[in-house]
């Protein structure tokens, strides 16, 4: 289905990620250049007062964008706004969701979230998807 065919209240197919692994975060550290050790080394996370290593917020945000990747011929993400509201720990099972809220001119506005296994939003925000007019 095309983005243009979605109606208000419709959701894009949601995606459940495999349980978060240390290797996921090591890979993201390398690919992003964010080597803050609270994301990869237990002792450093504990020193920072955390119960264990936590995912980079940008890892979760990066994952969330994939809900829109396959619509690349129809348009692109014009704005992507996120508030980080919870921490993601190892073994957490994250589900990515997007719901169409509004259509304004050439844009479709979605609310987006990544939820943990307890149904709490760990990140939350909006995507404005611009539709090409040609």
């Amino acid at each position: 289905m095309k983005i243009a065919e979605y109606q208000i209240g419709h959701t894009l197919p949601s995606v459940q990620l495999p349980p978060v692994s240390r290797m996921d975060l090591i890979k993201y550290s390398g690919a992003s250049g964010d080597f803050n050790p609270i994301h990869t080394i237990d002792a450093e996370a504990e020193k920072a007062g955390l119960p264990g290593i936590i995912a980079h917020g940008m890892w979760t945000m990066g994952n969330l964008s994939k809900l829109f990747t396959s619509y690349h011929e129809e348009g692109f993400i014009k704005t992507f706004t996120i508030r980080f509201s919870g921490m993601v720990f190892l073994e957490d099972v994250i589900t990515l969701k997007a719901e169409l809220k509004e259509k304004v001119n050439e844009s479709s506005l979605f609310s987006v979230t990544a939820e943990n296994g307890q149904g709490q939003a760990v990140i939350k925000g909006n995507v404005s998807f611009h539709l090409y007019q040609d």
Partner: peptide
């Protein structure tokens, strides 16, 4: 996220303890 944006003179950030509150991109 991976780009080099240069350094802002006079802005000194700690290496640890920062919290990423929110993030947006506009294209």
């Amino acid at each position: 996220r991976i780009f080099d944006y240069g350094t802002i003179e006079g802005l000194r950030l700690p290496e640890a303890g920062l919290i990423h509150g929110s993030q947006d991109f506009e294209y």
